[in-house]
Computed example of a mutant assay.
Amino acid sequence: MSTKPSAATRTPSLTERRKAATQFDIARAAAELFTERGPDGTTAEEIAARAGVALRTFYRYFRNKQDAVGPLLAVGGDHWRERLAGAEPGTALPRALEAAVTETLTVPHEAKAEGLRWTRGLLRAAAEDPALRAVWYRVNRESEDRLVPVVARLAAKDADPLEIRLVAAAATDAVRIALEVWAESDAGLDGPGSPADLAVRCLRELTGGMRLLTGSQED
Rank of each mutant, 00 (worst) to 15 (best):
A170N: 10
A183L: 04
L122T: 05
P195N: 05
A159R: 03
A125G: 10
A125Q: 15
V181T: 07
D145H: 15
V151C: 00
N140V: 14
K157H: 11
Y137M: 14
G191H: 02
R124Q: 15
A183F: 03
R133I: 11
L189Y: 02
L154D: 01
I177V: 14
E180S: 09
E163V: 06
E128C: 14
P149I: 06
V167I: 08
A156I: 08
A131F: 15
R138Q: 14
D158L: 07
A171K: 07
L147F: 07
W118M: 10
V181W: 00
E128W: 15
P130F: 13
W136C: 12
D190L: 07
A170V: 06
A152R: 09
Y137I: 15
A171E: 10
A170E: 11
G121T: 04
R153L: 00
A187K: 05
N140E: 15
A126H: 11
L198W: 01
Y137E: 15
D190P: 07
G193K: 04
W182N: 00
L147A: 11
E184D: 12
R153I: 02
W118Y: 14
K112E: 13
A159D: 03
D190T: 10
A187D: 06
G188H: 02
K157A: 15
T172K: 05
G191W: 02
D158C: 08
V151A: 01
G188Y: 00
L132I: 10
Y137N: 15
R153M: 00
P130L: 13
I164A: 02
P192K: 04
V175L: 11
L162F: 11
D160A: 09
R153C: 01
D158F: 07
